[in-house]
C-alpha cells in the first residue's frame, strides 16, 4: 500500500514539474477527436484524484503538486470543450504550443487553414481566397474576376480549376 503510494507520489511530483511539456490530450488521456461526453468523463475521472478536495494530506509538496496539476486539468478541459478553441489548440500544438494561447494558437490555425487552401503561390492563393469570399457574399461578378486572376498565376492548379468550373468561367 505504502509502496504504491510512494510510487504515485513521485509520479505526481514528476508530472507537476513537467506540466508545461505535457499537452492537454496527454494530460486528459484523450484522443484529439474526443467527443464532449467522453471528454467530461475523462475530466471527472481525473478530478476524483486531483481535485484539492480529494487529497487530505499534510504533505505540502504533494498538495502543491496536485493543485498545480488540477489547475492545468481545468484549463485543458475548458479549452477542449469549446470547438473553436480546440481547433486552434490543435493547430498550435503542431507548432509546439502545449498550452492554449489566444493569439498564437489562433494565428497557428489561420496559417494552417491558409496552407490547406489550394495553390502554391501567395498571389494565386490571395486571389482564390478573395474569389471564395465574393462568391460567399453572392457577388458572382467579382468572384469570377478574382478567379481569372488566380488562374493567371497557376493555370493548372486543380483546386482553382474546380472552383472556376463551379463559377462557370471554365468549361467542365
Amino acid at each position: 500500500m505504502s509502496e504504491d503510494f510512494d510510487r504515485w507520489r513521485s509520479q505526481v511530483l514528476n508530472t507537476a514539474v513537467r506540466l508545461d511539456e505535457i499537452d492537454y490530450f496527454s494530460l486528459l488521456g484523450c484522443p484529439q477527436t474526443v467527443v464532449p461526453a467522453d471528454l467530461r468523463q475523462a475530466f471527472r475521472g481525473l478530478a476524483q484524484s486531483y481535485h484539492p478536495d480529494a487529497l487530505v494530506s499534510e504533505d505540502e509538496e504533494l498538495t502543491a503538486a496536485v493543485e498545480a496539476i488540477y489547475r492545468r486539468l481545468t484549463e485543458a478541459y475548458a479549452v477542449l470543450r469549446q470547438p473553436s478553441q480546440r481547433q486552434a489548440y490543435i493547430a498550435g500544438l503542431a507548432q509546439g504550443l502545449t498550452r492554449y494561447d489566444p493569439e498564437k494558437s489562433q494565428s497557428a490555425l489561420k496559417d494552417f487553414q491558409a496552407k490547406q487552401a489550394p495553390g502554391r503561390s501567395d498571389s494565386g492563393r490571395l486571389h482564390f481566397q478573395r474569389a471564395q469570399r465574393a462568391a460567399a457574399q453572392g457577388d458572382r461578378f467579382s468572384a469570377a474576376a478574382e478567379m481569372r486572376l488566380a488562374l493567371l498565376y497557376e493555370p493548372n492548379e486543380p483546386g482553382f480549376l474546380n472552383f472556376a468550373q463551379k463559377l462557370g468561367i471554365v468549361a467542365r
Binding site: 475530466f43 484539492p52 493543485e67 488540477y70 489547475r71 492545468r72 481545468t74 484549463e75 478541459y77 475548458a78 498550452r99 494561447d101
Partner: peptide, 15 residues
Amino acid sequence: IIDHNSPIPTERSRL
C-alpha cells in the same frame, strides 16, 4: 482571460 462557467481552481498564463 478566464471565461465564466470555467471549472475552478484554474489558471491561464499570458505573455
